[in-house]
Design a protein around this nucleic acid. Structure first.
Length: 491
DNA sequence: GCATTTACTTAGTAAATCGATG
DNA sequence: CATCGATTTACTAAGTAAATGC
C-alpha cells in the first residue's frame, strides 16, 4: 500500500492550472461508506426504569445505548446534556415508553454500560490473529471506499465514512450538547462526481438524494446534519493535489504579507489616530490580530453555539485595562474563551495610543457590550483585501506563526547540531508557535496517574540518595579512622 | 522476554473563517 | 444585512509503536 502511494505521487505543482473556479475535470468515486445497522441488545442485558426491567423498542434502545456508552464521561453529569438527551430520546420512544419514562434520574443503564465496558475490554484482550482479521477488514474498506479518481490520478479520501449516529458532544458549554445526532441514510446524501464517471451505487434498496456534477467544488458527497443544520462533506485528504495546492497558495499569501507587512503595520498605526471611530477600532483590532495572533472573530448566533469570541467579537467583559501592572505600563489583560472554548489569558503591554483608544471604546459600555461596536469581520477583511489581494485576518496568524517558527529555528539551531539536538530545537520552535497561537490540549485522563507514578519514582530515588549519602559519610569516617591507624603504622 | 506504560500517529468531527447569495 | 455553503483549523480519542519495568 505504502509503495503504491509512493509510486502514485506525481508533481502536481508542475501541471497546468484550470480556468478560475474549476477544481477538476474528472471525478469518480464509490460513494461514502455507511456505518452498520444497529444490533439489538442481547436478552440478558436490560434497561431498568424505577427499578423495573423495561424492554425498549429498537429505536429507543439504540439511543439508550448511546447514553449508556458515555456513562463514565463527565458529559452525562451535565444538566444541559441530560436535558437535551432526554428530550431527544423521548422523541424516539413509542407512546407507551414515553408515558412511562419521564425522569432520567430513574433510568438505570448500569447493565448496558457494563456490557459496553466488557466489549471494550474484550476488544483490548483480543488475540493478535483476531486483531489482524479486524485490521484486514478495515483495509478492505479503505481499498473499496477510501480512494477516488480525480483527473485520472488516484487520490486518498480524507473521511469516506458517513458519521455514525450518536449523542452530540459540543465543546465547552454548548447549548446543544446531548442532542441526538441522527443516522444518515443514502436518501440524505448528495453525490458529486463528473458526468462521464461511473456514478457510485447506493446501498441495496436505497437511492441517493441527488447526484450532481459540480466541478466548482472539491467535495465528493454531502449531507445535512440535524443538530445545527450544517452541511457535512466527504473530501480528499490533506496530501491530495486539491488540498496541497490550496495550502501552498495559503503560504504564498503569507509570504506576500511578509514583503508588505511594514507598510501595513504603519498603516494601522496611523489609523490609531484617525478621526473616524470605525477606523480606530479597525486599527486596534488589527494591532491585536497582528501582535497576538488572535482570530478574526465572526459574530455567532446566540443559543446555537458555545459562547466563544475572537478579536472582532470581543466584549467589554473580556479585557481589563491596567495603567500599571507588574512594572509595565499600559497593560491589557485578556480573558476570554476562543475557538473550541479554549481559554485565552494574557497580560500584554501595549503602546500608549492603543491603550488610549481602548479606554475610549470602553466608555459608557456594559460588560456584555461589544468592544468594537463599529467593526465586523466583513468590514475588516474588506479593508485588508484592499491593502493586498488575498489578505484576510487569518493570514496574519499564518504569517506570524510561520515567521516565529523560522526565527526560532534560526536562533536555536547550529549547523553542527546532531539529529537529536536539531529535533529538540524543532520541538522548541514549535512550542513557541503554539504559545503564540494559544494552541493547547487538555491533559489526558491518564495524566494524573502518570504523575503519581513519577512521584513514586522520585520518592524512591530520593530515598536511595539519602541512603547513599549516609553510606558515604559512614565510609568516609571509616576511611579516616583507617588512615589514622595506617599513618600510625607508618611512623 | 513478556507486560505495562508512554509517546506518537491517525481518525473523527466540531468549530472556525470568509465569500457568495438572496 | 442575515444566512448559507465550502473550506480550513483544531481539538479529542482511539489505535499503534516504542520504551521501560518486572
Amino acid at each position: 500500500m505504502k509503495e503504491e502511494e509512493e509510486r502514485n505521487r506525481w508533481r502536481w505543482w508542475e501541471e497546468e492550472k484550470y480556468e478560475k473556479g474549476v477544481k477538476w475535470k474528472f471525478l469518480q468515486h464509490n460513494g461514502p461508506y455507511f456505518p452498520p445497522e444497529y444490533q439489538p441488545l442481547p436478552n440478558n442485558v436490560n434497561f431498568y426504569y424505577n427499578g423495573k426491567k423495561v424492554k425498549l423498542s429498537l429505536a429507543a434502545e439504540e439511543v439508550a445505548l448511546f447514553f449508556a456508552q458515555m456513562l463514565a464521561h463527565e458529559y452525562t453529569t451535565k444538566k444541559v446534556f441530560r436535558q437535551n438527551f432526554m428530550k431527544d430520546w423521548r422523541k424516539e420512544m413509542t407512546v407507551e415508553e414515553r408515558s412511562l419514562i419521564k425522569d432520567l434520574d430513574k433510568c438505570d443503564f448500569g447493565k448496558i454500560h457494563a456490557m459496553h465496558n466488557d466489549k471494550v475490554e474484550a476488544r483490548k484482550q483480543m488475540s493478535k490473529e483476531d486483531k489482524q482479521v479486524l485490521k484486514d477488514a478495515n483495509e478492505k474498506l479503505v481499498t473499496e471506499f477510501g480512494y477516488c479518481l480525480l483527473d485520472h490520478h488516484k487520490e486518498r479520501i480524507g473521511n469516506f465514512k458517513i458519521e455514525p449516529p450518536g449523542l452530540f458532544r459540543g465543546r465547552g458549554e454548548h447549548p446543544k450538547q446531548g442532542m441526538l445526532k441522527k443516522r444518515i441514510q443514502p436518501e440524505d446524501v448528495t453525490i458529486n462526481c463528473s458526468a462521464d464517471s461511473r456514478v457510485p451505487v447506493p446501498p441495496a434498496g436505497h437511492h441517493w438524494k441527488e447526484v450532481r456534477h459540480d466541478n466548482a467544488v472539491t467535495w465528493l458527497a454531502s449531507w445535512s446534519e440535524n443538530i445545527q443544520g450544517l452541511t457535512k462533506y466527504i473530501m480528499l485528504n490533506a496530501n491530495s493535489k486539491l488540498k496541497g495546492e490550496k495550502d501552498w497558495e495559503k503560504y504564498e499569501v503569507a509570504r506576500k504579507l511578509k514583503s508588505r507587512v511594514d507598510d501595513i503595520r504603519n498603516g494601522y498605526l496611523r489609523d490609531l489616530k484617525s478621526k473616524q471611530m470605525g477606523s480606530r477600532q479597525r486599527a486596534v483590532a488589527l494591532y491585536f490580530i497582528d501582535k497576538l495572533a488572535l482570530r478574526a472573530g465572526n459574530e455567532k448566533e446566540e443559543g446555537e453555539t458555545a459562547d466563544t469570541v475572537g478579536c472582532c467579537s470581543l466584549r467589554v467583559e473580556h479585557i481589563t485595562l491596567h495603567e500599571q501592572l507588574d512594572g509595565n505600563e499600559c497593560v491589557v489583560e485578556f480573558d476570554f474563551l476562543g475557538k473550541d472554548s479554549i481559554r485565552y489569558y494574557n497580560k500584554v503591554p501595549v503602546i500608549k495610543k492603543v491603550f488610549k483608544n481602548l479606554k475610549m471604546f470602553l466608555e459608557n459600555k456594559q460588560p456584555g457590550d461589544e468592544l468594537f461596536d463599529r467593526l465586523s469581520t466583513t468590514v475588516l477583511n474588506k479593508h485588508l483585501s484592499s491593502l493586498m489581494p488575498g489578505l484576510t485576518a487569518k493570514v496574519f496568524r499564518t504569517y506570524n506563526a510561520s515567521i516565529t517558527l523560522q526565527q526560532q529555528l534560526k536562533e536555536l539551531t547550529n549547523m553542527s547540531d546532531n539529529m537529536s539536538e536539531k529535533l529538540l530545537s524543532y520541538n522548541r520552535a514549535n512550542r513557541a508557535v503554539a504559545i503564540l497561537c494559544n494552541h493547547q490540549r487538555s491533559p489526558p485522563k491518564t495524566f494524573e496517574q502518570s504523575m503519581a507514578n513519577l512521584q513514586v519514582k522520585i520518592d524512591a530515588r530520593k530515598e536511595q540518595l539519602a541512603l547513599a549519602k549516609t553510606e558515604l559519610t559512614q565510609a568516609k569516617k571509616e576511611a579516616k579512622a583507617k588512615g589514622k591507624s595506617d599513618s600510625k603504622l607508618q611512623t
